[in-house]
Simulated assay, not measured.
Amino acid sequence: MLLTLAMPAMAGAVCERPVYLTFDTGHMGVAPLIAEVLQRQQVRVTFFAAHEKTREGDGSLGEHWAAWWRARAKEGHEFASHTYDHAYWRGDQPEGGFRIRPSSGPQSGQDLRWHAEEYCANLHKASDRLQQLTGQAPLPLFRAPGGKHSPALLKAAQACGYRHVGWADAGFLGDELPSDKYPNARLLAQALERIRPGDILMAHLGIWSRQDPWAPAVLEPLIQGLKRKGLCFATLREHPAYRAWVQDHPLSAQNRP
């Protein structure tokens, strides 16, 4: 069954100056706290998910986190692929295909050669698992790990049903940066100054390398500050650059090219 439930306070609301908050997976250590903030602030977001190593449990798309993903679906959030193995594009192959280095899964850290079909299979694997976990068809969108891609990779992904989603320059919220050089107060002030309507924002559900976690310390004051500036929050299903693609390319095994 396809769930399209909205948060209660969002029912009937019209978002006229939207920003699009997105989260990629990570170690999931702050995922419960992020969920509490989103629920308290009545904000819907889009999650890009890979099956990444986590601080506890069997990976970000494992059974340990299944209830967490189901709860987010009931709250009206959206979901999309981040490749199942968090597979970084490293370059195009002269004879076709791509150089890939997964950071998760059994081939983590290895330099691989994937054909377009293999890359698409990894996109599909994350989408299929998300649908299993949430009972909701994911969006026909993806985010390449690190935002790294090429025209050839984007063409291959589009041929198997996916449009790529990056982020605005101002939407890079900085949770991957070292906290000694980029403390939370600086990242918050910078985001509040720079973010504009229409921007896609990007953060993570946990970053291993950051000593002073960005979330939830920055997340709630950021949401509150943007609201005070007259901005509101929407999912990528509603983004004007992706709305038609999402509508015309329902993502399921039956509809795959």
Rank of each mutant, 00 (worst) to 15 (best):
L154V: 10
T46C: 13
S60E: 13
Q39V: 12
P18L: 04
C232W: 11
F79Q: 01
G105W: 05
E63G: 11
P213M: 04
E238S: 14
I34R: 00
E117T: 11
E16D: 15
S60H: 02
R40I: 08
P197H: 06
S252M: 07
V218Y: 05
A137L: 14
S81T: 09
A121N: 11
P183G: 10
A241M: 10
K227Q: 15
G171P: 01
V246I: 08
W68T: 09
R44N: 12
Q247D: 12
H249S: 01
T83Y: 03
L201Y: 05
A137M: 13
P216S: 05
G105Y: 00
Q254Y: 14
C120G: 11
Y84D: 05
H86V: 02
H86M: 02
G96W: 06
R228T: 15
Y88M: 11
H64A: 13
R129P: 08
R99F: 14
E238F: 07
A87K: 00
K181V: 13
L38C: 07
C232I: 06
K148R: 14
N184T: 14
W89Y: 11
H51F: 03
A189K: 07
H51M: 07
L2M: 14
L236K: 11
P94D: 04
I100Q: 00
L5C: 09
F233S: 02
H77L: 05
I34M: 04
S209H: 00
A121T: 09
K181G: 11
L192R: 10
R210D: 00
E36Q: 14
D248F: 07
C15F: 06
E56W: 11
H239D: 01
P145V: 03
F47A: 04
Q158N: 15
L187P: 06
K74G: 15
R256K: 12
S179A: 10
T22I: 01
D85P: 12
P213K: 02
Y20N: 00
A185T: 13
A71C: 07
P140Q: 05
E238P: 07
G174D: 05
L177E: 06
W114G: 10
V19K: 00
A67N: 08
F172G: 06
W65E: 01
V19T: 05
K74L: 15
L177F: 12
A80T: 01
G57D: 01
S179P: 10
R70D: 10
Q158M: 09
W65I: 02
A253S: 13
G91W: 02
R237T: 13
L192E: 14
E176W: 14
T235I: 08
E78P: 10
M202W: 08
Q247P: 10
V37Y: 02
N255Q: 15
R55D: 13
S179Y: 01
R243P: 05
L187E: 08
L130S: 08
L130C: 03
M202N: 09
K148G: 13
S60Q: 03
N255T: 15
A121F: 03
H149Q: 06
Q190E: 12
A13H: 14
P216Y: 08
E238C: 12
C120W: 00
T25Q: 03
W167V: 12
A144V: 03
V19H: 01
W114V: 00
